[in-house]
């Protein structure tokens, strides 16, 4: 029951020179391929006892000045599935983002946009039995970065997903429907296929919007699938 190999023509390649940092951080040798073993088909599990009540509420989980985070209030929700369409329940999702002005709360960050005293920028949750998750936050702002002389990242939220196996471990970014910056971004454009990029663009969902409170964006995440257990006992593997 090994995992499907990754389609590395769908993922971004390692070397993408218009994203300059990749030039010195991309391996030059071919990857060594190997069918998955128990070392890759297992992975850590995190229990709900890990979570505090505000872990998935970025508007409130860093309330220092007593208020709430400033910005466009949104709910982000979706499901985690595998490539066969099965839900991935009980998996830890971590997310992080800049504030509404595009400023990250990180010591290495020097952008002049102000920090929000009530916004930390980190959250986490665990998918339910349907593979569903949700969290509340403010929509992050675009921000400039030292790549080209005038490069700006589109509004985005970073995601880290564990899945059920270390082979499924994934870090990616969610973008927002209709943002014209998506198609200009050298990091987005590391992904060769436009339809693959579209898979990272969350749709505005007016049905899930909370009236007079928050807009909603739907973002489903797909992790690697795996073969069924047909002819499992064949010595050459399965």
């Amino acid at each position: 029951m090994s995992y499907f190999p990754r389609d590395r023509a769908w993922h971004p390649p390692a070397l993408t020179p218009s994203y300059k940092t990749s030039v010195l951080r991309a391996p030059q040798q071919a990857l060594l391929s190997m069918p998955t073993t128990a070392s890759e088909e297992t992975g850590p599990v995190f229990g709900h006892d890990l979570l505090g009540p505000d872990d998935n509420d970025l508007i409130r989980n860093f309330r220092r000045a007593g208020g709430e985070a400033i910005g466009q209030r949104i709910v982000v929700y979706g499901r985690v599935l595998d490539e066969t369409g099965r839900p991935v329940p009980g998996t830890l999702l971590e997310f992080w983002q800049a504030n509404a002005g595009g400023r990250y709360r990180h010591k290495n960050e020097g952008y002049r946009a102000a920090l929000d005293p009530n916004f930390g920028g980190c959250g986490r949750t665990i998918t339910d039995e349907r593979g569903a998750y949700h969290f509340r936050t403010v929509k992050p702002g675009a921000y400039p970065w030292p790549n080209g002389v005038n490069d700006w990242r589109p509004a985005h939220i970073h995601f880290s997903v564990f899945g059920h196996a270390f082979a499924q471990r994934l870090v990616t970014q969610m973008y927002f429907e209709g943002d014209p910056m998506i198609w200009q971004c050298p990091i987005v454009r590391t992904i060769p296929d436009r339809s693959a990029v579209e898979q990272l663009v969350a749709a505005l969902d007016r049905q899930a919007t909370i009236p007079m409170d928050s807009l909603a964006y739907k973002f489903d995440i797909v992790l690697r699938g795996r073969r069924s257990t047909m002819f499992e006992n064949r010595m050459e593997g399965n």
Partner: peptide, 11 residues
């Protein structure tokens, strides 16, 4: 089959 969500840098 669905396609795996493409990876992006952790930044």
């Amino acid at each position: 089959y669905l396609k795996e969500s493409p990876s992006q840098t952790a930044g």
